[in-house]
Design a protein around this nucleic acid. Sequence first.
DNA 1: TTTTGAGTTGTTCGA
DNA 2: GTCGAACAACTCAAA
Length: 446
Amino acid sequence: MWFRRDLRLSDHPALAYAARDNNEVVPLFVIDPALVRYSGQPRLAFMYRSLRALNESMGGQLVVRHGDPQVVVAALAAETHSTEVIVSRDYAPYGRERDAGVAAALAAQQVGFVGKGSQYAVAPGGVLKPDGTPYAVFTPFRRTWNHHGWSMPGDVVAANWSGADQWPCAPIPNDPELHCTLPPAGEGAAHSRWDEFVASGLDSYDQSRDLPAVAGTSMMSAYLRWGQVHPRQLLADLRDSAAHEIFRSELAWRDFYADVLFRSPQSARQNLQQKMDTIRLDTDDAARERFELWAAGCTGYPLVDAGMRQLLATGWMHNRVRMIVASFLVKDLHLPWQWGARHFMRHLVDGDLASNQHGWQWSAGTGTDAAPYFRVFNPTAQSKRFDPDGHYIRRWVPELASLATSHVHEPWTSPGAAAGHVRQPMIDHAVERVETLSRYQVAMGR
DNA sequence: TTTTGAGTTGTTCGA
DNA sequence: GTCGAACAACTCAAA
């Protein structure tokens, strides 16, 4: 059993298949340098902690090895005289290519490669229009997705492990040096957090999910990212209410974007809508300096800075704020969405290629079912609307903590501003908004 | 087959 | 202060 993004023992179709008939199961995790290079320290640390939790849950049997999976998996299969290598299917571009290579290497030594299940309620490719083609719009996708349905969660799998006691195994690496705090890792932590959310947050999700100062979101993203919980386990706890329906929708978005990336792997790097390639963007040295200010949380727009600093401090950012900082990068700074997406992937514990890149493409107006080009978030209006008391701003931008609520969204209006005691906004939103509208209109030939 | 209405997340302007 | 319209263009499904 080769674990990847399915670091759990419950409701695990691939593991259940591997463990059938009391088969001996060799549990493997490969630390792939190609992925380590790509992951930031927070996600890597969370992965290592998750591996320790998984290892513990199987009595210390997890076999950890380093290297190219094509070499490592084939070698362990030969050592252990395995007849099959079992995985949960991976639908992302790198994973598909990697798995094809591993399957070929295994086939050369007469070992099977079997994929069972995915990390989605409905696996990519599974939701189709009546004519057999994929959906390009979310709402009809979700209708069909709902109708398609998914199985009930399975039980904890009890496997007959043949693991680290018997086969050479590398230690799970120590955490890299971290400058942020992380949520507790592991399948147990995932279920604890979910139970807490069901008990105290889910029923008011529709009311509070957009308020970054309120702990109104599920915080399940990192656990879903690593498969410490399967979405179907969450869906099984949802009922028919407005709040539950909105949460169900969020899980549908996750499946939708995985489906879009599956069908258009190039959209991880390029505009999904190629006609948007002509939008004029800034990429010179001055643009790079503006990007650095954004990344460090020094734009002068309090809510934007709060979000960017929350990301650096915790490896996570509230969803509403992700949209606001993304809109700011794309539509106030005129930078390529790919710059922002890369920064997010480096810092997010929950960083997932499909959701991240397509969330960014939505903000940039270049993706499937994207925001219309003229929808430009006003960073101060959003701030007043979604952080009315300024609690979130004061928490993450301490230099603004003493400002009155009447000034906290626009510190440049405060009495100390004239004396230079507050950061000036790096750009004028009203000016850049007009600039964006004009650039997009030019790109669309208007 | 054609038409029609609806579609995650917003802002600004003018009445 | 409040409210509706305008800001596009296209996909999809139901009528």
